[in-house]
Each structure stands twice: as C-alpha cells, then as structure tokens.
C-alpha cells in the first residue's frame, strides 16, 4: 500500500476509535450515578465526537473521492471499521465503563503526544487540540478509579473484576501492523513499543493508588484494527446508522 493509503487508513482508525467510544458513552446518558457525572460524561463524549469529525474530514480530503464525515460514519460496514475491540464492548456498570475509558485514554494520550511530533501537519494540529481534552478526561477517570478501588469492599471488588475482564483487550493497542509501520516509516508516526512502556507506567501508578492489582499478562484479543470485530459492533452500527440507511441520500 502507498504511504497515502496508509495515512488514510490510520486516520480512519483514529476517527473510528473516537466515534465508537463516544457512541457507547452516549448510551449512558440519563443513566449516570449522579447529575454531575452526567455533565462529565456528555462533555467527554462531545470531545470524542469532535475528534472523530476532524479525523473523518481529513481522511475524506486525503482520499479525494468526495466522502464526507457522515459517509464514513454511516455508510461503512463493520469490516471497514478499524476501531479497537476494547471500545465496542457493551457498557456494563459504571466500573466497567470507567476501566474501559481509562485503559484507552492512557494509551490515547501518549499516542496523541507522539502525533504532535509526526510529519503530517494536519494530524499534528488535530492531535494538539485533542490532547488538552484527553488530559482532562484521564485526570477525571483516574480520580474515579482511585475512589472505586479504595472505596468500599464492593466497589473494590467490582473495579478489580472490570480491570481483569478488560485486560485481554489492551494488547491490541500496542500490536503494530503494516499500517502502523508505514506511518512510522513515512510520517515519523508513533512508536507503539515505547507508548506501551509509558502506558504501563501510567496505568500501574493509578492502579496502585487505587489499591488494585494489575492483571497478569495473558492471551490478548485482536482484529478490531483490521476489521475483524466482535458480535457487538454489528448491533452498535445497526442502531447508529439506521436512519441514513433507511433513507439513502436524504439530507438531515
């Protein structure tokens, strides 16, 4: 594949991660444990959708076939989405959603940081804007993980289980495939191995403060980046894309 094709595919993965996670967060509206958390959840989801839109728009420009952000979001099938498996898992309870969030954000923060130093001007700009938002998300999520882990016995056990269950999806974030490699070679893109170290350090810090245990490394699920998803994504997309699919060509 050409450098440009790799860049497009890479950008779409960034967009897909942000959109799929935002979609899951949006399902939690009106179901949060406290009103103040409703505001936080909506804030973060808005940030992610905003990032997705910037990445999709850029991918469309790079591709040059006139595809809009909505074409990417609503008219592609599961096998064309390159989001991480972690993000399409169903919400579960507050602890599950929180753990999913923090595991991703610790990775995303370092990824964005690396992107601000890559040679693609536009990705640098988008990343610079997104970093400010994600820094705050990570801070807020850390506060919560500590309170759940070091809260009651019940919250501690639940948080530990959430962490144990989510762990098998974390490996995928750091497995470089030919698109990641092409990004590194052609655009000074992120080095996933070094991001992995930073991520481990950050997650370990919060986990320890939360009096939780870091799960042992184990078999890691993968395939999301390559379009081989869990059964969950199909349902998520069916709901999300329904109106555009039912009324092809309509303006909303």
């Amino acid at each position: 594949m050409s450098a440009n094709q790799a860049l497009i595919a890479y950008t779409l993965r960034l967009a897909d991660n942000a959109l799929i996670l935002a979609q899951r967060m949006v399902e939690l509206v009106a179901a949060e444990p406290e009103l103040e958390e409703e505001l936080a959840n909506a804030n973060f989801a808005l940030d992610f959708i905003g990032q997705a839109r910037m990445f999709y728009t850029y991918a469309g420009e790079l591709e040059g076939q006139g595809r809009s952000e909505d074409d990417f979001a609503f008219m592609r099938d599961e096998r064309e989405f390159g989001n991480l498996l972690l993000l399409e898992q169903p919400n579960g309870h507050f602890g599950d959603a929180l753990v999913r969030q923090i595991l991703f954000e610790a990775f995303y923060l370092h990824l964005l940081e690396a992107l601000t130093r890559c040679s693609d001007q536009r990705l640098c700009e988008i990343a610079a804007r997104a970093i400010k938002e994600v820094k705050y998300h990570f801070r807020h999520s850390s506060h919560w993980l500590v309170r759940l882990g070091d809260g009651t016995e019940l919250s501690h056990n639940r948080a530990q289980t959430s962490l144990d269950d989510a762990w098998r999806y974390t490996g995928e974030m750091f497995i470089a495939d030919e698109i990641d490699t092409a990004m590194q070679e052609n655009f000074d893109g992120p080095d996933l191995a070094s991001i992995h170290e930073l991520w481990r350090r950050d997650i370990a810090t919060v986990v320890v403060e939360a009096t939780l245990q870091l799960p042992d490394d184990q078999w890691m699920a993968s395939g999301g980046k390559q379009g081989r998803h869990s059964e969950h994504l199909g349902f998520l997309l069916a709901e999300m894309q329904y109106l555009q699919r039912s009324f092809p060509g309509a303006t909303w």
């Binding site: 505001l39 936080a40 804030n43 801070r139 309170r147």
Partner: peptide
Amino acid sequence: SVHAPDDQMALDHARDTYTR
C-alpha cells in the same frame, strides 16, 4: 453550587458544570 464527595471531585464537577 455542586455536590461532590471531596474537594478534588468538587473542582472537577465545578469545571464541568460552570465552565464547559
């Protein structure tokens, strides 16, 4: 005003409510 379990969370909640 906001409700929060502690000072640190109060800052977070205040930020999300009054400065978004």
